[in-house]
């Protein structure tokens, strides 16, 4: 591909898809925001739920139930509202894949 064509393609993609531009490590980065309470890579050290290895569907259901208020919480209902469905899915898949 000629450079000019490549740049034109990049520009079109950039103009239409900037908002969707995704870092290859986005799931890892988002999951790291949970680690303060739930441990590095979801390995809690006590008093909090370990998320590492938990099935992704279960994580998604819990977080969305916190968000809707179906599952009562002290704090998770407020935190869950800060994450989109897509972000929750990325985080859930990441933790599910941890050992």
């Amino acid at each position: 591909m000629k450079l000019a064509t490549a740049c034109a393609v990049l520009l079109i993609v950039g103009a239409t898809a900037t908002a969707q531009a995704q870092d290859p490590n986005l799931a890892r980065n988002l999951a790291a925001t949970c680690a303060n309470c739930h441990g590095t890579d979801g390995q809690a050290v006590g008093g909090m739920e370990t998320l590492a290895g938990m099935p992704a569907e279960r994580i998604v259901k819990k977080v969305t139930d916190y968000r809707s208020g179906e599952l009562p919480a002290t704090i998770m209902h407020q935190i869950a509202k800060g994450y989109t469905d897509e972000q929750i899915r990325l985080i859930a898949d990441y933790f599910a894949a941890r050992k």
């Binding site: 680690a35 303060n36 309470c37 006590g46 008093g47 909090m48 002290t74 704090i75 509202k81 800060g82």
Partner: peptide
């Protein structure tokens, strides 16, 4: 998103200490 507790509680006292161990 975000917010505060409705009131201080023993349960959140336990969570506070668990937070410290985990972070």
């Amino acid at each position: 998103s975000g917010g505060v507790s409705t009131a201080a509680s023993e349960l959140e006292g336990k969570y506070a200490l668990a937070w410290s161990r985990n972070i």
